[in-house]
């Protein structure tokens, strides 16, 4: 039992990331409001980045910026996850922008943000499901 809690403590950040991911995922699935869905997607992305960042951290080491020309590998954390997260953030910003633009279009046409209502209206408009 003690081993179990020890391991939980060892992977506390990934567990936090998973819980955050769950919050985002459930928001995305359960809310019918498009803006809230988009918020949910963003939370999911953030959770993924949290987990990725946690792999770059090594206790007692500095951030990966060389200080005074000292390139001892035991001094610095891993620069790769930070770079990947940077890429990921830009991707999620772009995706959010596109989703929000889609929302603006939908709102302009149907005057609603509720996907069910929009769906019903679209069905009426075109006749077929």
């Amino acid at each position: 039992m003690q081993g179990f809690w020890e391991q939980v403590w060892n992977v506390r950040i990934p567990i936090a990331a998973v819980l955050l991911f769950a919050v985002g995922f459930v928001t995305l699935l359960l809310h019918r409001n498009l803006l809230k869905k988009i918020i949910g997607l963003n939370i999911m992305d953030t959770a993924a980045y949290l987990m990725l960042t946690s792999f770059g951290y090594i206790e007692g080491r500095l951030s990966p910026i060389i200080q005074n020309g000292n390139t001892d590998p035991a001094l610095y954390g891993n620069p790769l996850p930070a770079g990947l997260v940077l890429t990921g953030i830009v991707v999620s910003v772009s995706v959010t922008a596109v989703l929000l633009a889609l929302t603006v279009r939908l709102y302009a046409r149907y005057h609603s943000l509720n996907l069910d209502e929009i769906y019903a209206m679209a069905q009426k408009e075109h006749g077929l499901g």
Partner: peptide, 28 residues
């Protein structure tokens, strides 16, 4: 841009982004 494509695109994006989110999580 007819109403139907906007709706379809929104759905497509949401499904697709769940997909890529899971893929990213797998990579991580």
């Amino acid at each position: 841009q007819i109403g139907r494509t906007t709706l379809a695109a929104t759905r497509y994006m949401i499904f697709s982004l769940i997909g890529s989110g899971l893929f990213l999580l797998g990579v991580i």
